[in-house]
């Protein structure tokens, strides 16, 4: 009986939409992932977009959200393979936009639905891409609720 309950719990946990409070960079990340991607923004977890999304992102590095992130082909391919390997499979993780943004997925918008507009406009936040503006340990891949400090609000309680 106890085992059955455990199995049921485990199954439920696995079926839950992304345990998103711990999203460390997967251990098989090529050094180029940190060197190239994480030099301009924190290393976004590959599990926050689908494989098709990442392929689109990596196909348009010359138009990378208003910037240029052009890479040589070998490095580009290496990073794309890594992202695709760890990409999300659920459709609610699919980004929107061209190239797709992980900050526009159904999941992301749901998780951030209670934030007022003025927080997004706050100079200390400046952009939804700036995870560490509120997720104080995002650089370490940790997004736990107790680590959230929203500029203008302080500690965030859901």
């Amino acid at each position: 009986m106890r085992t059955a309950r455990l199995i049921a719990c485990a199954a439920l946990a696995l079926s839950l939409p992304a345990r998103a409070d711990r999203l460390p960079v997967p251990a098989d990340a090529p050094p180029a992932f940190k060197a190239e991607c994480a030099s301009c923004h924190l290393p976004y977890p590959p599990a926050l977009l689908t494989a098709a999304d990442w392929q689109q992102v990596m196909a348009k590095l010359d138009k990378h959200y208003g910037g240029s992130a052009v890479l040589d082909e070998k490095t580009r391919r290496e990073i794309e393979d890594f992202l695709v390997r760890h990409a999300a499979t659920r459709s609610r993780m699919a980004g929107a936009g061209d190239p797709p943004r992980l900050t526009r997925s159904e999941w992301f918008l749901h998780e951030h639905r209670k934030l007022p507009d003025r927080t997004w406009r706050d100079a200390r936040v400046s952009s939804a891409s700036n995870c560490s503006a509120c997720h104080t340990r995002a650089e370490q891949g940790s997004y736990r609720e107790r680590e959230i400090v929203v500029p203008g609000f302080g500690k965030w309680k859901d």
């Binding site: 030099s39 301009c40 923004h41 924190l42 959200y65 208003g66 910037g67 200390r124 936040v125 400046s126 952009s127 891409s129 700036n130 560490s132 503006a133």
Partner: peptide, 26 residues
Amino acid sequence: SEKMPACAACHTDSPLQAGRHAVTGK
């Protein structure tokens, strides 16, 4: 570029100072 009109947008007025990415805040 609207968000990056000049070098200083990310690198501040002086190359001796630490800067901040104008879009991502890094």
